[in-house]
């Protein structure tokens, strides 16, 4: 079984610097694998381990995603190989552009049985790309997938919806966006990290994918700012638990909430 897992490499939200005018800078942010894409990688690797075949990790984005640390980090989590489409034209790509590039890359990889994506990317978390990708590939596509069982050319999935669990059967190939609790992602061990350095990495350009021009953006980001902080009273209550509890209870009464 040939599995492709899509993972976004993005700046870490906890490294956001807020400037005094409310604008934000990501210049110093560390780039990482999206924390919700790790589960997709884990799911892909487990399916391969159970059914044989291979896992190709796929990531698209600006040049800086092509970094030895990120490559190693992806590969040490178990995929057999990595495909990167790293061009600055893809910096800040919208979901439509991303999905189109991913679709072209999946087609070029060829003979893919299953594509997995995370629940949402670390920076946008729009939970969109997987669905768009499936539709572009014209194959069955579902989100919120919390269990995957593969048999021959079929796959049986469980979806965790708001109020119900749904079990579906679909033909392969398919694209599935998995939930964050499908599996706990592994921490790579020493041997896997050493092995990662030896796995193949393919760097494809947009031209290699047959995309002569970068796909037209469909959305333009007009501004990116820190959220306006809500003013709070910021009263710090210290002292013994009894004292603190008494004084808090007092405040709650005064606020009219108890």
């Amino acid at each position: 079984m040939k599995i492709v897992v899509c993972a976004k490499l993005a700046p870490d939200a906890s490294d956001i610097e807020v400037r005094s005018d409310g604008s934000i800078s990501l210049e110093r942010a560390e780039w990482r694998i999206g924390s919700f894409d790790l589960q997709a990688i884990e799911a892909a690797v487990r399916l391969r381990d159970a059914h044989g075949g291979s896992v190709t990790a796929l990531s698209v984005g600006p040049q800086r995603i092509n970094h030895s640390k990120l490559r190693k980090d992806l590969l040490s989590r178990g995929p057999d190989e990595l495909v990167l489409v790293a061009e600055d034209a893809l910096n800040g790509a919208d979901t439509a552009v991303t999905a189109q590039v991913l679709a072209a890359a999946v087609r070029k990889i060829g003979a893919v049985d299953l594509v997995l994506t995370g629940e949402g990317s670390a920076d946008l978390y729009f939970q969109q790309v997987g669905l768009q990708l499936g539709e572009l590939l014209a194959v069955p596509v579902f989100n919120a997938v919390s269990k995957i069982e593969v048999s021959d050319s079929q796959v049986r999935i469980e979806r965790s919806l708001e109020e119900e669990t749904e079990v579906l059967e679909l033909p392969l190939p398919a694209v599935l966006a998995v939930t964050t609790d499908i599996h706990t992602p592994r921490l790579p061990n020493m041997k896997e990290i050493l092995l990662a350095a030896k796995k193949p990495v393919y760097e494809w350009s947009l031209a290699d994918l047959g995309l002569e021009n970068t796909p037209e953006p469909r959305v333009e980001a007009v501004s990116l700012r820190a959220p306006r902080p809500v003013e709070r009273k910021r009263i710090l209550i210290e002292g013994s638990p009894e004292e603190a509890a008494q004084s808090l209870a007092g405040y709650l009464v005064k606020e009219g909430v108890v």
Partner: peptide, 22 residues
């Protein structure tokens, strides 16, 4: 909703646009 997101993403891809999410 989860199903709503699926509908939006797939519809957007069919129409050649990017959905504005959430």
């Amino acid at each position: 909703t989860i199903r709503g997101r699926a509908v939006a993403g797939r519809l957007a891809a069919r129409l050649g646009v990017a959905a504005l999410a959430d």
